[in-house]
Design a protein around this nucleic acid. Structure first.
Length: 471
RNA sequence: GGCGCGGUAGCCAAGUGGUAAGGCACGGGUCUGCAAAACCCGCAUUCACCGGUUCGAAUCCGGUCCGCGCCUCCA
């Protein structure tokens, strides 16, 4: 059996078969670059990263596109508030976004198209929609999609638009609409837009939000592609509108598999600035947590399950990761010790058993919990085998490379370059060893305390002292 | 009101008909100069509640209670 995904379009778990064998084309709704992204946003991006990494792990070539929304009400408002150009304003948050991706070890997509670089593509798409009778121009020069021209509207979200009523949440500037459910493809310029505008066949204005995803996804991935992801909140109206725009324009199915990520809550409550439980990634780094600890927490709950994020879960992640790191270090040390010949049967067996469980779990709609259980079962069995001296250096090398292989999907193993004790630390460790040989425990313990204050934990092993970073 | 999700040990979290994975925390032990790490043992007779189906249910059906999300530009 191969990979299966829950497809929002059919509301069932389906076998995954890409359009082109061996190749997956996926589109991911990216950030609106008006502020630092928050931990909830990253929940979605980490999920998409897991998806991408696992598809690659299973041998697919992945072509991923993530858009950057750099023109909308919020970016325009932000730029005007600060009196800088839209480009200058969004450039800052684009850069911050990529820094955050690196912190969380999120792999880069193949393309990050910015909306402002593709306004021409959007205009062309809107023209097609008008020509085919799916869109109309209002008196003020805005263009709206005509929902009534697309009978399948609602098929993704199962929303019945006849129940929609004009109300508080219907934006004031959209007066020219024939039906409240119609949505803007192009917005005529108004004063709040300042100097942000593009020329179009309908006059000066800017694109609506939904159209960018249709235009850019189809430009880079073709009129029909394999996977489209996003947060659950995007199902309606954003993705519903994307389907309408794209399929009305091309007459072809737009996306084959829709995958949506559930929300993240903090301490059981919706994250909001007023509740004081709003975290950007940077907030967490300031509190001393690392990107991989955050990644571990975000990856650990199934993507269709709402994730209850807490600071104590980050502490738990830290300890769990230390456990992984330590076993990996034991394996490395054994590799260097050149013990035994060839790969022992225990190692072979553990690797094949773990890999089977790992794949079986993740094939099943990215079921991470059993896959993580496979990892921790492996660690326990490896430690056990190490304790009874049942692993050879070649076996350790095999196990170590298997951990590295799994980490192509997990992306949370320790990066070696992160820790190197300096000369002073080395000298102290040696001094302590000298004292310990003299059984001068009191002085030796003082040095141990001193090292701990310097950020290093000393562990005495039969093979000598081992240093571990205290975080 | 419409659409959808969930309630499993102190916390996080799998399991969708065959008798409760895994992680963190916690208690005891082995090892250790003491620690740390590792390992061993223990830690839900029970899966929000009430009925029902079944030889058998956390898993299926009906009902109740509770929490959460979306419903026009929020991942």
């Amino acid at each position: 059996m191969g990979i299966r995904f829950f497809n929002t379009l059919t509301r069932t778990i389906m076998d995954f078969e890409p359009l082109v064998p061996g190749e997956v084309r996926m589109y991911t709704c990216g950030p609106t670059v008006y502020d630092y992204a928050h931990i909830g946003n990253f929940r979605a991006y980490v999920f998409e990263d897991l998806l991408r990494r696992y598809l690659k792990f299973r041998g697919y070539r992945v072509i991923q596109v993530m858009n950057l929304t750099d023109v909308d009400d919020k970016t325009i408002r932000g730029a005007r508030r600060e009196g800088v150009s839209l480009d200058e304003f969004t450039a800052r948050y684009k850069q911050a976004f990529f820094e955050d991706l690196d912190t969380l070890r999120i792999e880069r997509a193949e393309f990050y198209p910015a909306a402002t670089d593709h306004v021409g593509d959007m205009i062309a798409l809107i023209e097609t929609l008008i020509r085919k009778g799916h869109a109309y121009v209002s008196e003020d020069g805005s263009v709206y999609f005509d929902i009534s021209s697309f009978p399948q509207y609602g098929k993704l979200s199962c929303v019945d638009t006849s129940g929609l009523k004009a109300g508080a949440r219907v934006v004031h500037d959209e007066y020219g609409k024939q039906d409240v459910a119609d949505f803007a493809l192009w917005k005529a310029w108004d004063e709040a837009d300042g100097d942000v505008s593009w020329e179009s066949p309908w006059g000066r204005g800017r694109p609506g939000w939904h159209i960018e995803c249709s235009a850019m996804s189809m430009k880079y991935l073709g009129e029909t592609f394999d996977i489209h992801t996003g947060g659950i909140d995007n199902i309606f109206p954003h993705h519903e509108n994307e389907i309408a725009q794209s399929e009305a324009a091309t007459g072809k199915p737009f996306v084959r598999y829709w995958l949506h990520c559930a929300h993240l809550v903090v301490e059981g409550q919706k994250m909001s600035k007023s509740l004081g439980n709003f975290f950007t990634l940077r907030d967490l780094l300031k509190r001393g947590y690392s990107g991989r600890e955050v990644r571990f927490v975000l990856i650990g709950t199934h993507y269709r399950q709402s994730l209850n994020f807490t600071l104590s879960s980050l502490d738990a992640a830290r300890n769990a990761l230390a456990r992984i790191d330590d076993t990996r270090r034991r394996l490395r040390e054994l590799v260097y010790r050149r013990k035994g010949h060839g790969v022992d049967d225990t190692s072979k067996h553990l690797v094949s058993r773990s890999e089977e469980k790992f794949i079986q779990a993740l094939d099943d709609d990215l079921n991470v919990a059993p896959a993580l259980a496979a990892l921790f079962d492996l660690l326990r069995d490896v430690n056990r085998a190490l304790d009874r001296d049942a692993i050879t250096s070649d076996g350790a090398a095999l196990l170590e490379s298997f951990l590295t292989k799994m980490d192509r999907v997990w992306g949370f193993l320790e990066v070696e370059s992160e820790e190197h004790p300096d000369q002073e630390v080395h000298a102290l460790v040696q001094e302590r060893e000298r004292l310990r040989r003299k059984k001068n425990w009191a002085e030796a313990d003082k040095i141990r305390d001193r090292l701990l204050r310097m950020g290093w934990i000393v562990q005495d092993t039969p093979e000598g002292p081992r240093l571990r970073r205290a975080k």
